[in-house]
Simulated assay, not measured.
Amino acid sequence: MFKRNPMALDKVTMINVVWTSMIAVMLTATVTLYQNKSDPSEMNYSQMSGRYQDVSYY
């Protein structure tokens, strides 16, 4: 009844392969970039503090 166009199936397959490859590369890059992050408790940042001063403008 319906004829399948092999060219259309190849395009869909190619798009799926490219999309899956892109997702895999992004996941690998994310894991690689965050792999060397050390424990946040070991980082020595200076304590930032501030004061709130209620000033009336009237």
Results as ranks from 00 to 15, higher is better:
2 F>I: 06
3 K>W: 09
4 R>C: 02
5 N>A: 04
6 P>L: 03
7 M>F: 13
8 A>R: 03
9 L>M: 13
10 D>K: 15
10 D>F: 02
11 K>H: 07
12 V>E: 15
12 V>M: 12
15 I>T: 09
15 I>A: 14
16 N>Y: 03
16 N>Q: 14
16 N>P: 00
16 N>E: 14
17 V>K: 15
18 V>E: 14
18 V>I: 15
19 W>P: 00
19 W>S: 15
20 T>I: 01
20 T>Y: 05
22 M>G: 12
22 M>P: 00
23 I>H: 04
24 A>K: 14
24 A>N: 11
24 A>P: 00
26 M>V: 11
26 M>R: 05
26 M>S: 11
28 T>S: 12
29 A>R: 03
30 T>W: 13
31 V>D: 06
31 V>G: 04
32 T>H: 06
33 L>M: 12
33 L>S: 07
33 L>K: 04
33 L>D: 10
34 Y>R: 03
34 Y>H: 10
34 Y>S: 10
35 Q>L: 12
35 Q>D: 14
35 Q>Y: 13
37 K>R: 10
38 S>H: 06
38 S>Q: 09
39 D>N: 14
40 P>M: 01
40 P>I: 00
41 S>A: 14
42 E>R: 09
43 M>Y: 03
44 N>E: 13
45 Y>V: 05
45 Y>Q: 05
45 Y>W: 05
45 Y>M: 07
46 S>F: 02
47 Q>E: 12
48 M>A: 07
51 R>P: 00
53 Q>T: 03
53 Q>R: 04
54 D>T: 01
54 D>Q: 07
55 V>F: 06
56 S>N: 11
56 S>H: 05
56 S>E: 11
57 Y>L: 11
58 Y>G: 05
